[in-house]
Design a protein around this nucleic acid. Structure first.
Lengths: 191, 191
DNA sequence: GTCTATAAGCCGATAGAC
DNA sequence: GTCTATCGGCTTATAGAC
């Protein structure tokens, strides 16, 4: 058990596992503290409130998730269509695991829909826009047109696939979404 | 206040308003009973548990929501592209209202992600598949090919737009999704 | 309308580093 | 000694159940 330096990081890691697995509303601060191996007092020393802890949870997943998708994209062979489709195919693999429970950003913001100004909602919104902006850059680099529109269309299909796969418990929705995304990309292929 | 016959329906109506506005986890059974004007005793006479009440909430929104979208589709002028796009444009209008909080089916099932067998999740899954099947029939009637695939692609864009509009608080995502959907439909236009 | 469990959040005290 | 990070226990509100 770390004594001071990375106690905060340990708490965030414990919170991430529980919040993702159960949903933020079903996880108590007591449960997070117990999982992290600290007392509630210590937890409240590092975080002002549960809401702050929720925001830290999403913040901690922002860059890792974007990096992972960027790696899938970069390592996929073929043209832009194939690289975009690769993100969906990798997600279909991930979604097949029993512990997969959809997109933590979407689920968390769905739970916080009645609190529009919540810091975690802002972080979720920024995360999704960050993905679209990164993808827009890749589309532009590949020489395709209407990069901004196209990147947003892919994001729509991605979030739709997160929702449908979770609801139907069927990762094949990612495959279907990937095909649709590749089709939309192909529509803008430069001459 | 109704005395016996449709007490159950009144409870469901009260629950629907509260669950949609606040999320199922943030609404207590007490709050539903008070809003419905019944005692908790009466509520537990009509529903075995809060989970049953949640399932009844989604069940009560299934047909009305499908009917509404079918009406938007039927009343829109133009070809299949225009009729599909009309659903998205109408939803953009609805999403502009301050009380709009996304799709109740998606938000509820997101909250219940850790309970895959929950009756409300099954109802949500059936609702979305019902939409896709209805749309598949319309696409087939219009003479377009690959109706099943196309209907699912439209559903993916629809659910993506629900997620993005809620997260970014921007109904324009429905317009963007509608354009993408119309594009995918046009790809399958019969010769 | 009462019961019991549990939620979020707060306070008094203290061990160890400098 | 002071300051930082920790702990155990406590308060108030509210949950679902009967």
């Amino acid at each position: 058990m770390p004594r001071h330096a990375d106690t905060r990081a340990h708490i965030v890691a414990a919170a991430s596992k529980l919040f993702y697995a159960e949903g933020i509303g079903r996880v108590s601060v007591d449960a997070v503290a117990e999982k992290a191996g600290v007392t509630k007092r210590t937890l409240y020393y590092h975080f002002r409130s549960k809401d702050d802890l929720i925001a830290a949870y999403l913040e901690s997943r922002d860059q890792p998730n974007l990096t992972l998708m960027a790696e899938w994209f970069a390592q996929a062979p073929g043209g832009l269509e194939d690289k975009v489709a690769a993100i969906f195919h990798q997600l279909a693999q991930v979604a097949a695991h029993p512990k997969w429970k959809g997109c933590g950003f979407l689920r968390t913001t769905a739970e916080l829909a009645s609190m529009p100004g919540h810091p975690a909602v802002r972080i979720g919104a920024r995360h999704k826009l960050g993905f679209a902006q990164w993808l827009e850059g890749e589309i532009t680099s590949a020489g395709y047109g209407e990069a901004g529109i196209l990147a947003r269309e892919v994001l729509l299909l991605l979030d739709g696939a997160f929702s449908a796969s979770l609801l139907q418990l069927d990762p094949q929705w990612f495959v279907a979404a990937g095909r649709a995304a590749a089709g939309l990309v192909a529509l803008r292929r430069p001459a």
